[in-house]
Amino acid sequence: MTWVSVATGLLLFAGVFFYAAGTVGLLRFPDPAARLHALTKADHLGLAFIALAAALEWGSVAIAAKIAAVWLLAIMAAGTSAQLMARVTRQDHSDEP
C-alpha cells in the first residue's frame, strides 16, 4: 500500500463525508436558504476532495489541471444557481400574505 493510495482513500472518504453532510442538510434543514447552503457549500467541498483524489490517482499534471477546471466550473455554476434559486424563493415568500 503506497502513500498515494492511502491519501486517495482518505480524500475519497472526506469527499463522501461532505456529500453525506450536504444531503443530510438538504433533507433536515428547515428553510430553502439553509438547504441551498448545505447543497452548494458542503457538496462542492465534497466534490473538491473527490476531484483531488481523482487527480492524485491519475498522477498527471495535465489531467489534474482539467479536473481543477471542471471543479471551478462546478462551483461557479453552483454559486450562480444557488443565488438565483434563493432569489426565487424569497420572491415566493414575499408574495404570501
Binding site: 450562480t80 443565488q83 438565483l84 432569489r87 426565487v88 420572491q91
Partner: peptide
C-alpha cells in the same frame, strides 16, 4: 431575467 439583481448574477 426580469429581476435586476438576478440578471446581474446571471
Amino acid at each position: 431575467m426580469t429581476d435586476p439583481a438576478a440578471l446581474n448574477v446571471a
